[in-house]
Amino acid sequence: MGRNTIELDIKVPNQTRYLSLIGRIGDALARELEEEGGGREVLADQLNVVLTEAMSNAILHAHDDDPDKTVHISLSISDHELCIRVFDQGRGFDLDAVGEPDDEGAREHGRGLFIIRCVMDVVTYRRSKGFNVLEMRKKLR
């Protein structure tokens, strides 16, 4: 682990009431990063929304809103890269089947993964050791 690397491993009940806590942890973490000549407001908002979207996807879709399940999130942030992993035990989904939102049709759902993909550089979803892992990476400058 590098000198300026922060790693967090978080497990919370599968309940949307914890979205705010997780989002705010991301927000606070981004603000801890040093950046020459300015703050990290944009990154703080981005980390907040990505964590919120990824976690609500796990809670509502992968875990069918079952309050007895647990969501596991791991965060690693260094001077150069941010990596978020969200683990679920659900049936999984096809990341490639998620398209862009249709602004003319104005659908109610289906913007969460689109937002994650816009903000992060690399997004993958795979099966690993009995879990599904949504992995999201972003280069930091």
Binding site: E53, S56, A106, E108, H109, G110, R111, G112, F114, I115
Partner: peptide
């Protein structure tokens, strides 16, 4: 101060 895709979806529902 903060909205996610569910918040946007709720507003789309109101628009409909």
């Amino acid at each position: 101060r903060f909205i996610d895709s569910s918040g946007l979806g709720a507003l789309v529902s109101g628009f409909k």
